[in-house]
């Protein structure tokens, strides 16, 4: 009797705690979404204490997306850097990962050593900045792509994955005389779908989310600012929201608080991630490096 009741108590406890954490994870997002749909009249009438507006309005979205081209341009830059950045990063990272996983490839130890050095020792913000600047990449689109072309940790994940592909799978291809490249394209690549999906998602999210590199390398090139940097500038300069609102209010009947305007941009910056998320969720575990845990 006692055992059953302790099991039950434990289950109730688990469900309560996990349920509470789920609410804490979700609530801010619902609140942000609610604010982004709230008009100022309703905002003022009800105060802040609301979760969702009675009369949702898309004014804020219309304003951000159509009344000015800043955000649309930023969105375009972000999409471009996600596509170009993810594709190039995956190709370069996978090549290195495959090479270091091949024990009979001459020079694989040298490559592995190079990758480990980059994990262990960083060149620092300023020397990297001077390198990018010396190559004439400042204020160009490539300043957001090239400095992070290879992800060293992902090289290790690829190595771990490729190293676990059963030998006989590859040997069977050797018999019908395929070259190493053919083997890689016909056998290894199709098998790597889960790791590729997972690391590709991480790389894409990384590109979508970054603003720091753009802030450093693109200081005088506003038209190349990705959405996250525009949003960051909007959030950190306290009166910029009001200024922007004043700028744009003129031709719109209903005014909206700068808070909800900011939240519109937050939503625009979040939605793409939430859209791809469900499709890639099953691959997450494949991209998590588990290291050399001795059995």
């Amino acid at each position: 009797m006692k055992r059953i009741s302790s099991e039950k108590t434990y289950q109730v406890f688990i469900y309560l705690v996990v349920g509470l954490l789920v609410v804490i994870s979700v609530f801010p997002l619902v609140y942000v979404l609610g604010l982004s749909l709230t008009s100022e009249t309703e905002f003022l009438k009800r105060g802040n204490l609301m979760i969702f507006p009675y009369e949702p309005t898309l004014t804020g979205y219309r304003r951000v997306l159509f009344a000015t081209d800043t955000y649309v341009k930023g969105l375009g830059v972000s999409v471009a850097r996600v596509i170009v950045g993810t594709v190039t990063k995956m190709i370069c990272t996978m090549i290195l990962g495959y090479m270091v996983s091949k024990k009979d490839l001459p020079g694989n130890k040298v490559l592995m050593g190079m990758v480990l050095v980059t994990i262990l020792y960083g060149g620092g913000t300023i020397p990297t900045f001077l390198t990018v600047s010396g190559l004439g990449l400042l204020n160009t689109f490539w300043a957001m792509i090239l400095p992070g072309l290879v992800d060293s940790w992902s090289v290790l994940v690829f190595k771990q994955f490729f190293g676990n592909i059963p030998k006989d799978v590859l040997e069977s291809a050797e018999i019908d005389g395929s070259s190493e490249l053919q083997k890689f394209i016909r056998i290894v690549l199709p098998m790597s779908k889960p790791v590729l999906a997972s690391l590709g998602l991480f790389a894409a999210v990384g590109h979508w989310n970054s603003w720091f590199d753009a802030a450093i390398y693109l200081s005088s090139k506003h038209e190349l600012f990705p959405l996250q940097l525009i949003l960051r500038n909007l959030l950190t300069s306290a009166n910029l929201g009001a200024e922007l609102a004043a700028d744009l209010v003129g031709n719109l009947e209903e005014t909206q608080t700068s808070t909800s305007l900011r939240m519109v941009v937050v939503v625009v910056g979040t939605v793409p991630i939430l859209c791809v998320y469900p499709f890639l969720q099953k691959y997450f575990t494949a991209g998590v490096y588990t290291g050399a845990v001795k059995e």
Binding site: L96, T131, L149, V150
Partner: peptide, 16 residues
């Protein structure tokens, strides 16, 4: 990728 490692990762270490 190797040129990348040399230029963007190793060179800054030297510069530093």
């Amino acid at each position: 990728p190797v040129a990348y490692l040399l230029v963007f990762r190793f060179w800054p270490i030297l510069l530093q």
